[in-house]
Amino acid sequence: MIINNLKLIREKKKISQSELAALLEVSRQTINGIEKNKYNASLQLALKIAYYLNTPLEDIFQWQ
């Protein structure tokens, strides 16, 4: 199981879903879906999320 901390980290950094989506060149709905565990981010997208949030990938998506 993967624990998804994207919403928590994004909100801590005061970045909206729309802002993050624009940086990543995806839709806001994609970010929303990832945060609600409706969609799994591809490895490429997960790495981009970590880069733009300046946060280690394993802090955003944790295996349990």
Rank of each mutant, 00 (worst) to 15 (best):
M1K: 10
I2N: 06
I2T: 10
I2G: 05
N4L: 09
N5D: 04
N5F: 09
N5R: 08
N5H: 08
N5C: 13
K7M: 07
K7N: 05
K7Q: 12
L8F: 11
L8S: 14
I9R: 02
I9A: 07
R10K: 01
R10T: 03
R10E: 01
E11P: 01
K12F: 09
K12R: 13
K12S: 15
K12L: 13
K13Q: 12
K13R: 12
K13C: 13
K13A: 12
K14C: 12
K14A: 10
I15Q: 03
S16K: 09
S18C: 13
E19D: 11
E19V: 09
A21S: 06
A21Y: 03
A22F: 10
L23Y: 14
L23D: 06
L24C: 15
L24R: 01
E25K: 15
E25F: 10
E25R: 15
E25I: 06
E25V: 07
S27I: 03
S27K: 08
R28Y: 09
R28S: 11
T30M: 12
I31M: 04
I31F: 03
N32Q: 15
N32P: 01
N32T: 09
G33Y: 12
G33R: 15
I34S: 01
I34V: 05
K36P: 01
N37H: 10
Y39Q: 12
N40M: 14
A41S: 06
A41G: 05
A41V: 15
L43E: 07
L43T: 08
L43Q: 08
L43N: 06
L43P: 11
Q44V: 11
Q44E: 15
L45W: 03
L45Y: 01
L47G: 07
L47V: 12
L47S: 09
K48L: 08
I49F: 04
I49K: 00
A50Y: 05
A50V: 05
Y51V: 08
Y51K: 10
Y51E: 09
L53R: 01
L53Q: 00
L53V: 03
L53N: 00
L53H: 03
L53D: 00
N54G: 11
N54R: 10
T55F: 04
T55I: 06
P56W: 06
P56K: 09
P56S: 08
P56Q: 06
L57P: 04
L57I: 12
L57G: 04
L57W: 05
L57D: 03
I60E: 00
I60F: 03
F61W: 08
F61Y: 04
Q62E: 09
Q62F: 09
Q62P: 12
Q62I: 11
W63I: 07
W63E: 04
Q64D: 14
Q64H: 12
Q64L: 06
